[in-house]
Design a protein around this nucleic acid. Structure first.
Length: 331
DNA sequence: CATGGGCGTCTTGTTGGCGA
DNA sequence: TCGCCAACAAGACGCCCATG
């Protein structure tokens, strides 16, 4: 890897001159500036961020904390789309990102502690929200700047970006009710994340408002468990539609329904949240609520970098709109 | 001989001050 | 006006010397 010294030697100037050219200092002549730029290109020179941070006291590095868990969480397209938004904004503003990869809660805690101790991470983005989260408390205790992608719970000052998940769930439930469905089942995963609580709340509100009986069932992300649960649920009720609170769960549900010879949309309608390519290419294509994950990611970085740089460059919209993408599964 | 403390050097990039 | 020197940042590492 070429250093500023290598560029200086090649350009026949001192390292400080190269540094000033990089910083766009006007006191360097046009000829020298051009020469230095040519040499940087020829050597594929990229400034060493570690060395730069020694002087500037800034690493321009953001830590992304995702939920602990296995592949079904890490490979969730919603998460990948949020990360795409984060990386897109970070790249454009010369920020680097580090994403946690821990599988268990305990590992995640240790991983985040290490990131804080390294003193190299300027701020964090937490890609979930839930009550009494130890990771968020750790960031508060260590006075690390952070942004939540989800509902703020700890203080009014918490920086966050979120969808109105209650309203989104109301919209989706109402959409099915308007299509004549009265027996709608809501399936959600076993967890205490705020996003799912809000989606259940929105569903319940519409069901109560329409004088219909809500059916909320929490389910493990395990094929056998899902199959047994569905068999039991279908014995007791004749559901005509199922809403799932996340696409990954929905994928498992439609696969199990296929195995049980229950046809979509002929026998039952299905709809879910967090639209992605998976819903478009599912068999049959799934109706889903698009929560604009890339916009969530971009806004999260924007909020964080604005805080880190003590600027109020842009007016940030904290609530990202949602829309229902209608597909064959609810025809 | 093993251990530990203290000091110097090195890493890379930035910047104030100064000479040409 | 231009470009260089030297100091500086935080931490790793090596070397030397004193102590037990």
């Amino acid at each position: 890897m070429a250093t500023i010294k290598d560029v200086a030697i090649m350009a026949n100037v001192s390292p400080s001159t190269v540094s000033r050219v990089i910083k766009g200092n006007t006191r360097i002549s046009k000829e020298t500036t051009q020469k230095v730029h040519d040499c940087m290109r020829a050597l594929n020179y990229v400034p060493n961020q570690m060395a730069r941070s020694l002087v500037t006291k800034r690493s321009k590095t953001i830590g992304i904390i995702q939920k602990s868990g296995g592949d079904s969480i890490k490979q969730n397209p919603f998460l990948l789309d949020v990360l795409t938004g984060i990386h897109r904004y970070s790249d454009n503003h010369a920020y680097l990102t580090i994403v946690t990869t821990s599988t268990t809660e305990q590992e995640l805690m240790i991983e985040v502690q290490r990131l804080i101790q390294s003193q190299y991470i300027e701020g964090f983005i937490i890609l979930y929200s839930r009550k009494n989260d130890v990771i968020e408390q750790l960031l508060i205790d260590k006075q690390c700047p952070y942004v939540i992608v989800g509902k703020p719970l700890t203080s009014e000052k918490t920086l966050y970006v979120d969808n109105d998940n209650i309203a989104a769930a109301e919209d989706l439930t109402q959409y099915l009710v308007n299509k004549g469905h009265e027996k709608i089942l809501l399936l959600t995963e076993q967890s205490d994340y705020e996003v799912f609580k809000d989606r259940i709340k929105g569903y319940r509100q519409v069901m109560f408002h329409e004088h219909l009986t809500p059916h909320v069932h929490k389910i493990d992300l395990d094929r056998t468990a899902i199959k047994l649960s569905l068999i039991e649920l279908f014995k007791m009720h004749e559901f005509t539609a199922i809403i799932t609170t996340d696409t990954m769960l929905n994928m498992m549900i439609i696969s199990v329904l296929y195995e049980l010879n229950i046809r979509i949309p002929e026998d039952i309608k299905t709809a879910t949240f967090n639209d992605s390519f998976l819903n478009a290419y599912a068999s049959p294509p799934q109706t889903a609520v698009d929560v604009l994950p890339e916009q969530l990611g971009q806004t999260a970085v924007r909020l964080l970098t604005n805080k880190l740089e003590n600027v109020n460059r842009y007016q940030c919209q904290n609530i990202i709109p949602t829309r229902i993408v209608q597909r064959y599964s609810t025809n």
